[in-house]
Design a binder for these strands. Sequence first.
DNA 1: TCCGGCATTGGACTAAGGCCCACTTCCGCG
DNA 2: CGCGGAAGTGGGCCTTAGTCCAATGCCGGA
Lengths: 220, 220
Amino acid sequence: MDQDERVVFVVDDDPSVRKSVARLLQVAGFRTETFVSAVDFLERDRDSIGGCVVLDMHLPELSGLDAQVKLAESQPLLPIVFISGYGDVPTSVQAMKAGAVDFLSKPFSAEDLLGAVREAFARNARERSSRFEMDEIRGRLSALTPREYDVFREVVTGQLNKQVAATLGIREKTVKVHRARVMQKMSAASLADLVRMAERANTGSDALRAGSPVSEECRP
Amino acid sequence: MDQDERVVFVVDDDPSVRKSVARLLQVAGFRTETFVSAVDFLERDRDSIGGCVVLDMHLPELSGLDAQVKLAESQPLLPIVFISGYGDVPTSVQAMKAGAVDFLSKPFSAEDLLGAVREAFARNARERSSRFEMDEIRGRLSALTPREYDVFREVVTGQLNKQVAATLGIREKTVKVHRARVMQKMSAASLADLVRMAERANTGSDALRAGSPVSEECRP
DNA sequence: TCCGGCATTGGACTAAGGCCCACTTCCGCG
DNA sequence: CGCGGAAGTGGGCCTTAGTCCAATGCCGGA
């Protein structure tokens, strides 16, 4: 799913735009797939496919913004480059706030589109590799038995075996056994490794949540 | 610099806008300061002040976008809420790409402005606390002697004292001494703590850089 | 019912880390 | 030129951590 599974999905109801955009991207070396509507596109199986979406803002049935929301809910997260004929400011701002890579007004230059698509690819690659890493860690984490997980949590917060034993109400000896198994199952060469894994497994989901909730700090 | 040092800086060349925006924010409980031009604002001493900026896009001398760039170069990083009379799409997109919180077209509703300012405050608070934490760590880090720093780097990658001694060409005994001092100076209660500090000290500057550079992954 | 996974503990032993104290060398600074 | 900080070295002692082998009790599935 690595190299050639990187596609630019072009979604526009105007055949001439689809054609010209697709050609432009193909000439630049991108693989493309075109869709007439967002609904069509969303029906396509996108599992384990990387790349990005060039999405027209004004589509029948499902608008660009709605498609963006739907896309954000599904896996894998494909960055969006919007293109729009008579784009208005609020729409473009909304799109950018929702994480779009760029918002190009037609007519746009080839350089602008290619630049945006490249940026989208880069973003997708980052997102992808960080997700891959996290899935890897989570997978190993799920292979831990409940008790091992208990020990894991305590250990990565810096507790000594003795302290872990006290909190869990077991012998220090037992903690050692669990701990050794944790290190094995997590493929951690050292405690430092384990701590780093714990960090990623957390910061990952936090990062996704960050930004939206209106917390306490926004009060005047 | 905590509670009351949170100000909304309102920058607009139109007196009536300044007045109404300031009043609106004050009624909502925000402290405000108004400026006629971006140049004026940039001259103000903003050290250790939190809050955000409500910035008009169309200003004489220095435009909103230019002011945004200048502001991004200086400390502290104040989130920007743009307001614009006849905003065009490319400008708004550019502003959002450069990290603006929102881009409101005049006339805008009180709710929209207040919502944006609250979001900006929240973002500022997050940025601030993470920066504070990082400064704290960096400060301690800079208190380490060169040798201690060497040991620190090796230790947080999970090397055993023996291995550290080998790479540095010193006795394991000496490593232990340095290591102990590192733990003290960094106020780390455990190796896990130390590793986490090392992570933050790194991810911090990385996070700021991320997003802009066009790396290798963007090729088709 | 028997087997395997899980949790638990024990003993013995080695390696590694932490702490206390003392001592030397080098180097810049007053 | 002496002083102090930084670095390196050493011994001793204790605590922790890691490892190998072994064993018990529990529970659910074949």
